[in-house]
Write a protein that binds this DNA or RNA. Sequence first.
DNA 1: CGATAACTGAAACACGCGTTCCAGTTAGAG
DNA 2: CTCTAACTGGAACGCGTGTTTCAGTTATCG
Lengths: 191, 191
Amino acid sequence: MSTPGGNPRRADAMRNRQLALEAATALLAQPGTALTVEAIAKRAGLGSATVVRAFGGKDALLDTAISGLLEPVVQRAKTLLEKDSPEQALRTFLGELIAFQSAHHAISDQLGGLDLPATATLEAELVRSVDEMIAAARANGTIRTDLAPAVTTTLISQATYAIARSQPASQELADAFLTVLMDGLRPPTPG
Amino acid sequence: MSTPGGNPRRADAMRNRQLALEAATALLAQPGTALTVEAIAKRAGLGSATVVRAFGGKDALLDTAISGLLEPVVQRAKTLLEKDSPEQALRTFLGELIAFQSAHHAISDQLGGLDLPATATLEAELVRSVDEMIAAARANGTIRTDLAPAVTTTLISQATYAIARSQPASQELADAFLTVLMDGLRPPTPG
DNA sequence: CGATAACTGAAACACGCGTTCCAGTTAGAG
DNA sequence: CTCTAACTGGAACGCGTGTTTCAGTTATCG
């Protein structure tokens, strides 16, 4: 009996598990190709059964691959929060988040309809970091306070997601979005 | 031989065609239920074959249903463009567009991976109207001109789409989005 | 009324995809 | 080297969904 979703006992199986993970990660960054188990297996040079068995299912494999990509982004958010001013941290982080999602927007296509617990946890952490940036910037007086904080968070999350999804993903568009968003978030000048 | 995708010859068939169209339209406004041919047929009280035959395929049926819903929105954009100031037209229209997409966000879920020529045409018209609003507002001095017009259009389209998709779809969120977007689009005050 | 062509819809089919089976292969301990 | 349990992967399966078939029904013309 193998351990479903856990680490295999034999060295070759562990190597294959790694190959499957790398193949899935590579395909996440290469949109246009269907993200099927068959495609992942072919890219890894393995049979589809082997790929699935190593993780206990397609969902678990993608959860591992996506959360592995997302992890450094979450860490980066925490770092920025400590080192920069809230407003600067927010802008820098959103720019990086857009770049990340653009480079892997196959991820966004998978988030709906799949069960990805580790990814969901990281996303929650990410939202929390953004919340902290917003709260600090509000206290700072650098962004407007006439909107509910929760609304601001949702606004930023959704807009970021949308811009990253748009085709073609250009740096110009990302910059324009950030400019408009940050200007729109500034406290309104009375009159 | 029936006419695939065209109008049936017999009165009962025309009535069934109408029933299928109404069922599909109703399901587009009621998310959470899978938009399958079977579901549409059941709602219409018909067999699945009848539903498909009346339009020549699921895509054609949805294309007819969606473009039927989109048509008045497109007309509304043209009306606003003539009657209101560019800035006001833009804000009003975007608000209505968000409301429309929120009420039918099953539509957005179908736009990818389906062949919907009539819908695509209407979408293009819609984008063109937004382009005109933007151009007029730029000429007017009411929105910033330091961004490429095409970038502004994409920005607005994508952001609108995202907000409409967000759950839960609240009026507060839509209003906040419009406020931030329109403020961010205003010409930046020097200094 | 017939007569007939249009129409219906349950069932069969086609197809893609995730999962599981199982006969064969292989790593790795003794 | 030998032996066994772990592992492999092509094939079979299950499931969901769009499409097609075809025997039966019905609108509609004359």
